[in-house]
Write a protein that binds this DNA or RNA. Structure first.
Lengths: 311, 311
DNA sequence: ATCGATCAATACGGATAACGTATCAATGAT
DNA sequence: ATCATTGATACGTTATCCGTATTGATCGAT
């Protein structure tokens, strides 16, 4: 049976074409080299060297096999380095499920920073509604999830990344459209564009708690499950709503974003299954922690609206 | 140091993910398998399997290394088969030097037959003037030469492939242009287009011996070293000449080919250096012998001229 | 032509490493 | 809680490989 040692020996011998010199390069004596090469030839059933008892040269089959031996040994070296890089988390795949909202704030910079530092990691992005994220992480369909905290199962770890206030989104002609800040209570009688609790319970809870605090329950006129659609419907004059502040990046004619007088903060973070052995995870989390420490996601970005006031 | 055995073991283990079953498939007992895998992991510095003491599964690095291991072992198998095919002469390169004349008769069919039977042999063709062929074969610049016999050094072997008569090539208006067969003696006074002895001494000798037999030496009017050019010059009315019969495939307006009344035969064959270890040689020579036995090269091919008479 | 030097192969003894049997620790199922 | 299964460890035996010494053969020099 062929042995890697035989290939390593043959590689050097094919270059020196001299048993003595090759043996010296290999830090062995000449007889073992002769034996291993002979064994290799016996296994192949093919003479690799034409020995003159004075000089050795490669046969045509030997020349071909020597080229392939070099290729093979190089490939092995690469495979080893590759496995080591994979174990260090420098290579591999990271499947990331995210709430659509994250695409409006934390996701872009988080991914850019990470991808710049880990060019050989393939980040697979999938939009996952928060309701399904825990299951996806538990099943191993995703390695990381960017979502709202709250009611995460104990098998998951969570790291906060970002928080932002809510803001009011109003039709352009609304009576509060020019207000510096909107008191939430003023919206008590307004028709609301809401979204279902099932899709993103944590986000839903923040919004409805905010209304509750101000003594009313939003009067649902329309319900849709995407924040973008809420803004679109408000722009069409179908009601008002409270949405995460980063939605104001959507600059939609007909829709006006106004800060709230006192807004609860909405948090987004990254969750992962404890015990997920994906070696890319620690590196990603380190980046996430650094990002969270240096002030979270991008600044609220260019907007014609005044920035939300700090709470 | 990594060993092929470890890779072979890991390949099977990565497929079964079960030490006991893998060991059985490998016809060894379980402990050596565990040891070899542990040694492989120690060498790599990377755990390849996450062992549960109850179940084993590949780590991400292990999955990657397993794929590359399969690729590697497959590549080794291919390399072995490749070397064996090379040794059998089914693969490789055959450098063939040929006299231009061979392209008019033996070469096409010889090559087609051989290439059909040996699709993986790369035949490199080079035109070599007969004068330089022996040196090219001796120096190893060519494996085979197709040339005229005569004065080949004893380090070369030679196998006859083909023989053909000479024929007269005459300007279209020549007084012998309609003759069924030309008596060579009739050309004694004619201006000849000849070629230098140095380029192809053997061919030159056949032509001049033919003239000598009929009592004259050709009266050189022009000298050129390509047979094709001779025909061109004759077509332009610059003289007559004696050329190998297969030149009549050149259907050139203004040139007429006529058989000779009694022509010497010109032989072409294949020569090679004795001791050339190119494994493709025997196969080629077998084909050449078969071709020579079944009547040499192609029939004289479509021609408006009558065929040369058998001697 | 003879002698010496060089190169690769062979012989033999000692060390290293691999295997197999027996056993243990841990985990999951009954 | 018990049992079966899985992978790791211990130990004795066998096989393999290496190194030193030697041989056979070829090429160059005298």
């Amino acid at each position: 049976m062929i042995d890697l040692r035989q290939l390593r020996y043959f590689k050097v011998l094919g270059e020196t074409l001299h048993f003595g010199q090759a043996a010296e390069l290999l830090h062995i004596s000449q007889p073992p080299l002769s034996r291993q090469i002979a064994a290799l030839e016996r296994t192949l059933g093919v003479p690799l060297l034409a020995r003159n008892s004075r000089t050795a040269r490669l046969t045509p089959a030997g020349r071909r096999f020597h080229e392939q031996t070099r290729t093979l040994l190089d490939a092995l070296d690469r495979a080893v380095r590759d496995a080591q890089a994979t174990a260090r988390g420098e290579r591999g795949q990271l499947r990331l499920g995210f709430t659509m909202l994250a695409a409006w704030n934390v996701l872009p910079r988080l991914l850019k920073d990470y991808a710049d530092a880990h060019p050989d990691v393939d980040v697979a992005l999938t939009e996952v509604v928060p309701r399904d994220l825990a299951a996806a992480l538990a099943a191993g369909d995703a390695d990381l999830g960017i979502t709202f905290p709250g009611r995460l199962p104990p098998t998951l770890s969570y790291l906060p990344l970002h928080s932002e206030p809510l803001c009011a989104v109003l039709p352009a002609g609304h009576r509060l459209a020019q207000a510096a800040a909107v008191p939430v209570g003023e919206l008590a009688g307004e028709p609301f564009v809401t979204f279902p609790a099932s899709t993103a319970p944590a986000l839903h809870e923040v919004v409805s708690a905010c209304c509750r605090t101000h003594g009313f329950a939003p009067k649902a006129r329309l319900e849709t499950d995407l924040q973008q659609t809420i803004v679109n419907l408000v722009a069409a004059g179908l009601g008002v709503s409270l949405v995460p502040d980063s939605m104001r990046r959507m600059q939609l004619p007909g829709a006006v974003f106004r800060p709230l007088v006192a807004s609860p903060r909405l948090e987004l973070g990254v969750a992962w299954r404890i015990g997920n052995d994906n070696p890319c995870l620690p590196g990603f989390l380190a980046h996430a922690r650094a990002l969270a420490a240096t002030g979270g996601a991008d600044a609220p970005a260019a907007s014609t609206e005044p920035a939300a006031p700090a709470p």
